[in-house]
Write a protein that binds this DNA or RNA. Structure first.
Lengths: 140, 140
DNA sequence: GTACAATCTGTAGTGACTACAGAATCAAGG
DNA sequence: CCTTGATTCTGTAGTCACTACAGATTGTAC
């Protein structure tokens, strides 16, 4: 087993292309402590290994699932402690799921109200629109 | 007709209590030009009349309906020009409505994926959880 | 050697507020 | 008149998750 630098190390640009993240975002994740500061090449450019590529994939997937960076930070701490279990993922995802369902319900309520407004404004052919008037007044 | 200050003018705190907005938010709306700079009392405190109360109600209602401050700015410009019609409200609300519907659809897709993940992680009683593994890898 | 691409650091902008700090003003009770 | 406590004033910075620069340096291909 040699201890020399792996030939599989890649630049930040290659990492970004691989995972679909932007270069600036990767540096941002490093700044806020989600990604560890990687080793640098002679000129100061960052070099990433397989572990960091996998870590960024984890972040990307979790973000895509709508987890906040704080949620992800929590999960990654468990990863770093080597104690992340299915149970942890289950708990975090369940909480997240009910938040999502709440947001869907909120938006659906909003949709009904807006739909009603659109409907009433559509047919509002009278000179003074009661819908507009109502917007300017305290709710009854 | 007297030209003295109306007795119905209220402070920013009273305005906030009336409409349910926060004092800071009212000042914020003034700063970004949604609310006009009101006249001041002797000591420099803001005084609001009925017109501004109605204007703030409009903003509150529109925000509650999920319109962006930019949307609201647009509508209020028409109000200031005295040309706001039911048609304008209809157009703006329709656009907004389809954006809301798009977001609902996005969240519902997300809900399905998350639900599936929760489901699989729930039953994942094997030592190595394939769900977690998948989170660390490029999508296949 | 010379382009040109990629990377570096640091800072500021987004939306819609919210949260202070520190000073001034106002309203009520004694 | 004076004090106390609430309210208001201005200005600035923080939130979230990036994104977009500027200006300097480094890496790479010909």
């Amino acid at each position: 087993m040699s201890a020399v630098t792996s030939t599989r190390e890649i630049t930040i640009g290659a990492l970004a292309r691989k995972t679909g993240a932007k270069v600036e975002t990767v540096r941002y994740y490093e700044r806020i402590g989600l990604m560890p500061a990687p080793p640098r090449a002679a000129g100061g450019h960052r070099r990433y290994g397989e572990t960091q590529v996998r870590r960024l994939w984890f972040i990307r997937h979790a973000r895509h699932l709508g987890f906040s960076l704080d949620d992800i930070r929590h999960l990654l701490r468990l990863v770093d402690e080597n104690t992340l279990t299915c149970r942890d993922v289950h708990i975090s995802a369940s909480e997240h799921l009910s938040a999502i369902r709440g947001r869907i319900a909120d938006l659906q309520r909003l949709e009904r109200v807006l739909n009603d407004l659109v409907d009433r404004c559509d047919r509002g052919l009278t000179p003074d629109c009661p819908v507009i008037d109502a917007l300017f007044e305290a709710p009854s």
